[in-house]
Amino acid sequence: MQFLLCGRVYPALHSVQCPVQAESCRLTGPGQTVKLPARMQDSPGSDILIRVRGLTFRRGERVIFDNVDLDFQRGRITAIMGPSGTGKTTLLKLITAQLTPDAGSVEVASRNIHALSTPELFEMRKRMGMLFQSGALLTDLTVFENVAYPLREHTQLPERMIRYLVLAKLQAVGLRGAAGLLPAQLSGGMARRVALARAIALDPMMIMYDEPFTGQDPISMGVLIKLIHTMNDNLGLTSIIVSHDVVETSSIADHIYVISDGRVMDQGSPAELERTASEWARQFLKGLPDGPVHFHYPAGDYAEDLFEN
């Protein structure tokens, strides 16, 4: 069977991809023509997809981010690294407007995401994939139905077309054979791969990974690293990885921001960070037990404490 897509003939429906700039495209299958959802026009020319300026966010008294500037380049893998509890996940929630900052702006595709109306925001989110730490799969649906969910919600594609698309996405993450399983029957790594297939179901312009490597055995870690890399290259996605796994993240990231205490401590390519001048960043990236962050929690004099009574 052949498919005609955006004027190009595909020998078989392996993966359906629309050119990034196309406003909409027609998917022609055997005996049926389907209009895929129109893509919003990105502002071409700018190669920075997400621009964060002066971002400040507080939780009660605690300052999570203090006047942070970040740039995420189109088509690149940018990593945000930092110790646990520095609000890396919070940053993703701010970028996707699940949270509202106290000051500063987040521009996605040249639009201030916090100034959008709800329908506009939802329209924007269809183009932003996010991979949650737990996968966030809907527990009462099968793997197949989970991946099909965004398609069923946002398109009027016929059942056959949904099947083609879902199987293609599952094939891409290597889990076509698991289509009939329930999320409870999947391992953590598999759940994340299914979630990845779901996140790319609507062919987003970008995808965010929240701690993708945490708690994975070496094999599934390797699988995830390969997947993130190939997704980025093959689909032309802009990727953001939030992680504290230094080695894995450095192996695929094009640019790394190291944040701690609400500030950007250091940034650069993995090679640049290798030679960083910041002592703090060096301690974090090399995993040294002592350095600017002390091994000991602040305490009084040891001998004094011992012989106090």
């Binding site: 989110r125 949650f132 799969l137 919600e153 779901r198």
Partner: peptide, 21 residues
């Protein structure tokens, strides 16, 4: 449980309103 496993956030990120669905 849906909240603990981030399913609501997941729905919102799929541009699906959890209140409606």
């Amino acid at each position: 449980l849906m909240k603990a496993t981030e399913q609501f956030a997941g729905l919102e990120m799929m541009a699906v309103d959890p209140y409606k669905r």
